[in-house]
């Protein structure tokens, strides 16, 4: 059985100060149908670019340099623009980070969701609207019928995100990309939205690429986790393994710096230094400038993927040495 979504050695670059910088560098990921893969990283690590790359919506002047994205075995990169458009929102949908600004302020939310349906299916406007009311009920918007006529500014942030989810689910996509779906929301609303996503995912059996920087959300929702640092994958593992037995120094550092990871009263650790500016990325391992376990090979070449267990791999020379080369 083929994976729902495969990303193969995807590279995306932006021009910065006269040179092209790879903000995503040869990232490879696979998501099976019915699986939730969490993509974790600091802000600026290239998470959202991977998502936009899958939809071929990388904003100018950025561009996809190399790599393939396969949706159920079909490569998206060579598709023509109209073919790609047919897939967007239909088989491959996306939920964005900012529900406040991601909806057009001058169109009713019902119309915006109906548009997504009408773009992909030959149904009447009326039928689309009826579907829209159904969807609103499904994602838990109270008073769904009336709310379809509301403008975004008349809804709270949580409701807006529910609208976004309804819009993404409107065509029953097989792959859903959720880019920090709860970051902009209150904590209590966050829990509700996560609950909703989990329910919907079980129901439809779609694959979800969940982008986040929050291990709490990872713990709630993800089956597997991939960690990204400065545009490169550093570790990939099933949730339990990654949360409890991380191997890459960066993943370990990330987890140690999380509140709740240490006994009360102890100081939280932090990773020394900051994400290097895009123009000053180190030549070898991109984490080398901040890594406590750095040694010669780290500065010379990029670490390759190292299989530690079935489904668990890390990109690190130190780990490789530990394993006995």
């Amino acid at each position: 059985m083929s994976a729902a979504l495969e990303i193969e050695e995807l590279s995306i670059s932006f021009p910065v100060a006269g040179q092209r910088v790879r903000v995503v560098d040869e990232v490879t990921l696979q998501i099976q149908p019915g699986e939730v893969l969490a993509l974790v990283g600091e802000s600026g690590s290239g998470k959202s670019m991977i998502a936009l790359g899958c939809l071929r919506l990388v904003p100018k002047p950025g561009r996809v340099d190399a790599g393939r994205v396969l949706l159920h075995g079909r490569d998206l990169m060579p598709l023509s623009v109209p073919e790609m458009r047919k897939l967007r929102g239909a088989s491959l949908a996306m939920i964005f980070q900012e529900p406040m600004t991601s909806l057009s302020p001058v169109v009713t939310v019902g119309e915006q969701v109906a548009e997504a349906i009408l773009l992909h299916e030959k149904v009447t406007r009326k039928a689309a609207h009826a579907r829209c009311v159904e969807l609103f009920e499904r994602v838990g918007i109270p008073d769904a019928g009336a709310r379809t006529h509301a403008y975004p500014h008349q809804l709270s942030g949580g409701l807006k995100q529910r609208v976004m989810i309804a819009m993404a689910l409107s065509t029953r996509p097989r792959v859903l990309i959720a880019d920090e779906p709860t970051t902009a929301l209150d904590v209590t609303i966050q829990a509700q939205i996560l609950e909703l996503l989990r329910e919907l995912q079980r129901e439809t059996d779609s694959a979800i690429l969940l982008i986040t920087h929050d291990f709490g959300i990872v713990n709630e929702l993800a089956d597997r986790v991939a960690v990204l640092y400065a545009g490169r994958l550093v570790e990939e593992a099933p949730r339990e393994t990654l949360l409890h037995r991380p191997r890459h120094p960066y993943t370990q550092g990330l987890l140690r710096s999380m509140p709740g990871s240490v006994v009360k009263g102890e100081r939280l650790e932090e990773i020394a230094g900051t994400l290097p500016p895009l123009t000053e990325l180190p030549a070898g391992c991109r984490f080398a400038t901040r890594c406590a376990r750095v040694f010669e090979p780290c500065h010379e070449s990029t670490p390759a993927s190292l299989q530690l267990a079935p489904e668990h791999s890390a990109f690190c020379f130190a780990v490789a040495e530990e394993e006995g080369g």
Partner: peptide, 15 residues
């Protein structure tokens, strides 16, 4: 055209 809702519209599959 640089606003978020335009990106949403594109992600929906609008030309």
């Amino acid at each position: 055209t640089g606003r978020d809702y335009v990106r949403t519209a594109r992600a929906k599959g609008a030309g």
